[in-house]
């Protein structure tokens, strides 16, 4: 058990160090997120009433797209320089390595989006409470995106046009997260209880933690053949 935990932390730490050495990649995802969100008012007009209503959906869809953007790198960089093969030979189950990479990916590409949300919420004139719920829902939901996305990233490893294909595979699977995530904010603004949405999101997160590392590990083994 200790060895499993230790390997998990080794992988997380390694990926975080690598991300820090390549800060530009992290920033690109964040800037993409901010830009997509800021484009919506330009597209649909500046009426504050409508923007307030659209804000949760816009932020969630943008977060979805931003995380798709960064998922392509999740395994491919390690695949290209051979370090992924070494991880396949780790003396602990591959799912531990995969979970470590998922967590690191979320900390680098999901967490910054959550932290950026309040600023963007202001752009859309969202009430304070709604911003809080939106952040909570993103906090619970973006890890699920990283995890489901990791399956897609593993399946499309090394394929031509893998990035677009990845989105094609993963986006439909992410729909429940999107629905519950935006639903929570909608329920909060209309004065209904939002806890049921968040607990459903939490349930999805638990399910994802339980199953996706194993599935993604299988996918990696298939793709590495």
């Amino acid at each position: 058990m200790n060895k499993i935990l230790w390997l998990f932390f080794v992988v997380v730490r390694r990926d975080l160090i690598l991300a820090m050495r390549r800060r530009a990649d992290v920033l690109t995802t964040l800037i993409f997120f901010v830009m997509v969100v800021s484009l919506f008012p330009l597209g649909v007009g500046p009426e504050p009433e409508m923007l307030r209503k659209m804000a949760p959906g816009v932020l969630w869809v943008s977060a979805l797209l931003a995380s798709m953007l960064s998922l392509g790198r999740l395994f491919s960089a390690d695949h290209l320089d051979g370090t992924l093969e070494q991880m396949l030979l780790a003396p602990q189950p591959l799912s531990v390595v995969v979970l470590g990479k998922m967590v690191a990916h979320w900390m680098v590409s999901g967490l910054p989006l959550v932290l950026m949300t309040p600023v963007l919420g202001l752009q859309f004139d969202m009430p304070l409470e709604a911003v809080g719920v939106l952040m909570l829902s993103l906090l619970l939901g973006t890890p699920v995106l990283s995890m489901i996305g990791a399956i897609g990233a593993a399946l499309t490893l090394g394929l031509r046009g893998g990035g677009v294909l990845l989105s094609l595979l993963v986006l439909p699977l992410c729909i429940p997260v999107l629905i519950f995530g935006t639903g929570a904010v909608g329920a909060a603004t209309s004065g209904m209880g939002f806890s049921s949405h968040l607990s459903l999101l939490g349930a999805l997160l638990v399910l994802a933690v339980a199953f996706t590392p194993w599935v993604a590990a299988q996918a990696l083994r298939i793709s590495m053949e």
């Binding site: 399956i151 399946l155 595979l169 699977l173 519950f180 996918a219 793709s223």
Partner: peptide, 25 residues
């Protein structure tokens, strides 16, 4: 062989997800 196995895994993930998607929709 990789095509078969990779898409099989995707189909299984998809079919597990279908009830969740249907329910959420």
């Amino acid at each position: 062989r990789r095509a078969d196995r990779a898409s099989a895994l995707l189909a299984i993930v998809g079919s597990v997800n279908v009830p969740i998607i249907y329910f959420s929709v």
